[in-house]
Every structure is written in C-alpha cells, then in structure tokens.
Amino acid sequence: MPKHKPELARIYNVFGLSSNHELSTLLVNIENTKRFSDLLHAVEREFFMVPGEPSGEPEDEGAAVDDECLVNRWGSKPAGYLEQFRAALPIAAANSIPDYEAPETGEKWSLTGENGSWDYDNLDELLKDNYGHDSCGDGHPASFRSGLYEGDTVYRGTECKDDPAKFLPDQDDLLEHMSERAYESDAGEWVDNYPTLDAEAKADLVRAMRPLMAWARKHCQPEFFTIKDVTPHIVTVEDVRKAAPW
C-alpha cells in the first residue's frame, strides 16, 4: 500500500509506481499519459479521418454525417491497433499530401512579344541590355533591329508553369504499361485482360499516385513556361531614368 494517499493504491499500480513514490510523481505520470493521448488523437484526426456513411436511422435523416477514423484505439489491443494502423497507412499517406498550389510566378518582359523572346524578369534588365543598341542580327538586312528608345513598344506578360505532376503517367498509362509488360513476359500467351481492377483497387491506385505527384512537384519544377496576359508597354523617359546607369 502506498504510504502517500493509500486510497490511490490502484492508480499507483497502473503506472508501475511503488508505495514510496510521492503524489507529485503520480501526477507527472498522469500528465504525461494525457499528453501522449492528445498527441495520438491529433495524429488520428489529421491523417486517419475519412468521410463517414449515413447511419440509415430515421432520426438521423438530414443530419450531417460525421467523419470516421480508420483506427480505433478504444478497446483495441496493441496487435489489433497496429493491424488497423498498417492497413490505414496508404490512406494516411495520401491524406497528408496537400492539393497542388502553383508556385508564385512573376512577370516577364520581351522586346517583341513573340514566343521564345521572354528573356527578362523586369523592365530595367530589358532596357539595360537593349537601350540604344542597334543590332545587325546575322548580317542580313531583314534581321537588322534598331536600338530601343523612348516611345518604343515592349511587352509585359505573366509567366505560367505547368504542374509537374501533369508529366507523370496517369492511372490508365500505368495499367497499360503493366498490361504490355505482362504480354511481353514469358507467360504472355496466357495473359488475359491483365490487370483487372475492382472499384477498391482503383481507389487505392489513385491514392498510391499522390506521393509520386508530391515528389514531382518538389523535385521536378520546370524551368520552361508559357506566357499569358500579354500587354504592350511604351518605354518612357522615366523608365529609362530608373534603369540607368547601364
């Protein structure tokens, strides 16, 4: 029996404490347990929640449907909870990946507004490279370009970059690739409609693709871009003053 608060003997025992521990030690253990429980609850809420199903009960008709947790710690033994956790990991991995947000892109500037001519991030750079500089091009008269001066027109546009995930194979591409490899395998003559997926397998494939999409967005951002919202800009004396000196 603990010498401190003997009526708490069973609680001391739950935490593996001896009868010589102070009440403050018991409280620390309780506080830690509550903190660990809150952390586990936060993980479950963030990663393991999925839309629930209507109850079908008349009294619940029209009521909002609560989300459901894929793992259930209440009444579960460690082995059962780990089994649920393992089965839910692919869904948690997909849920942890945010929807795509395109990176911020700025404006681009061009002398001509033509494709492939958007070489400048701002007007100052364009002016420093081109103001007053006549160009003989490749030596042919038709390629001559006079220098840039006040009153001339240049072009401003908005840079647009594609989502890198667009360049990945989609689910149909992946399944077609698997089918082709199967037909080319040593057992290809016996292959028939491979792979055939049910609705659950197709849903799992969609989730399985999300980490790969996240990888592409992190590591494969394109340097190439297109331009939208092209507008002409007439070079002013103030533009030239701000860009100087060259």
Score class of each variant (00 low, 15 high):
residue 24 S to K: 10
residue 228 K to Y: 11
residue 116 G to C: 11
residue 3 K to R: 08
residue 212 L to D: 06
residue 38 D to Y: 13
residue 22 E to I: 07
residue 133 H to V: 08
residue 90 P to W: 03
residue 4 H to A: 01
residue 85 F to K: 10
residue 185 S to H: 10
residue 27 L to E: 02
residue 84 Q to Y: 14
residue 88 A to S: 11
residue 51 P to V: 06
residue 224 F to I: 06
residue 213 M to I: 10
residue 201 A to L: 13
residue 246 W to C: 10
residue 151 G to D: 10
residue 172 D to F: 14
residue 213 M to D: 09
residue 229 D to S: 12
residue 46 E to D: 12
residue 240 V to I: 13
residue 87 A to R: 12
residue 191 V to R: 09
residue 143 S to M: 14
residue 11 I to K: 04
residue 83 E to K: 11
residue 170 D to H: 13
residue 75 G to I: 03
residue 142 A to G: 10
residue 173 D to L: 05
residue 118 W to I: 05
residue 144 F to Q: 08
residue 5 K to G: 01
residue 16 G to M: 01
residue 232 P to M: 06
residue 84 Q to N: 12
residue 68 E to H: 15
residue 142 A to Y: 14
residue 136 C to N: 05
residue 214 A to G: 05
residue 138 D to C: 13
residue 198 D to L: 03
residue 15 F to P: 00
residue 129 D to W: 00
residue 183 Y to E: 15
residue 41 H to K: 15
residue 217 R to V: 11
residue 167 F to M: 12
residue 87 A to H: 03
residue 38 D to K: 14
residue 38 D to L: 15
residue 63 A to N: 13
residue 104 E to C: 10
residue 122 N to R: 00
residue 141 P to L: 12
residue 129 D to R: 11
residue 21 H to L: 04
residue 54 P to W: 10
residue 154 V to W: 02
residue 4 H to Y: 07
residue 76 S to C: 08
residue 116 G to H: 02
residue 137 G to A: 03
residue 209 M to Y: 00
residue 37 S to P: 05
residue 40 L to V: 11
residue 148 L to E: 04
residue 111 L to E: 08
residue 185 S to E: 07
residue 107 E to A: 04
residue 197 L to V: 09
residue 33 T to K: 12
residue 19 S to F: 09
residue 88 A to I: 00
residue 39 L to D: 09
residue 146 S to W: 10
residue 93 A to P: 00
residue 149 Y to F: 10
residue 206 V to C: 02
residue 35 R to P: 01
residue 211 P to R: 02
residue 179 S to A: 15
residue 224 F to N: 05
residue 122 N to G: 00
residue 109 W to K: 02
residue 195 P to H: 05
residue 69 C to S: 15
residue 35 R to D: 08
residue 8 L to N: 01
residue 172 D to V: 14
residue 148 L to V: 13
residue 245 P to F: 00
residue 47 F to H: 13
residue 84 Q to P: 09
residue 141 P to R: 08
residue 164 P to W: 14
residue 206 V to L: 04
residue 126 L to Q: 07
residue 12 Y to S: 00
residue 202 K to F: 06
residue 87 A to V: 06
residue 75 G to Y: 01
residue 232 P to K: 03
residue 130 N to T: 04
residue 146 S to M: 13
residue 132 G to I: 02
residue 110 S to C: 05
